[in-house]
């Protein structure tokens, strides 16, 4: 079976560890990749693609050296190889202008402010992964435990 990946991008190692800790309950179902820069994430995404696996969700910090989270997510949204990949921007520096740019240009699905709450993060992750699976059309059954039931039933009801 193909693997479904969730990629975390955060330049500060302590913060990266903290996000990964929160998502540990999902690790039996999904692959969680931790990256310290946009460059590293791009490399990991290439590998995932080569192996024929999926990049379901990106959770990126905003302010990072070399390439910011918004710039990186804009790159991904323009990359036709990842049409359904969902994006969460995690930021400690939410200014109005940034938010507008992120939503308009990077097709951000969720905007989460630091400090975040673990249950809210997990809730968003489940929602977006569910949408990714349905958008992509891969079988949802293997992931059922960790999917957002409300979204799943709503979408299934519409299509049947």
């Amino acid at each position: 079976m193909e693997k479904l990946n969730i990629i975390l991008i955060e330049d500060q190692r302590e913060v990266l560890e903290a996000i990964a800790k929160d998502l540990e309950p999902l690790e039996d179902t999904f692959m969680i990749e931790e990256c310290e820069s946009a460059k590293e994430a791009a490399e990991v995404m290439e590998t995932i693609l080569t192996q024929g696996d999926y990049v379901g969700l990106l959770i990126s910090d905003h302010v990072m050296p070399v390439k910011s989270g918004v710039e990186f997510l804009i790159d991904v949204s323009k990359d036709h190889r990842f049409p359904h990949t969902k994006k969460i921007l995690l930021t400690g520096l939410a200014t109005h202008q940034d938010t507008i740019q992120a939503i308009n240009n990077a097709a951000i699905d969720r905007y989460l402010e630091k400090p975040w709450k673990s249950d809210q993060l997990i809730h968003y992750v489940k929602q977006l992964i569910t949408e990714f699976i349905l958008d992509t059309g891969i079988p949802y059954e293997p992931y059922l435990d960790q999917l957002d039931k409300a979204i799943l039933f709503e979408r299934l009801r519409k299509t049947t």
Partner: peptide, 11 residues
């Protein structure tokens, strides 16, 4: 020491 390995070397 905390986590001394980079995310790339852990991978």
């Amino acid at each position: 020491e905390g986590q001394t390995l980079s995310s790339a070397s852990i991978r």
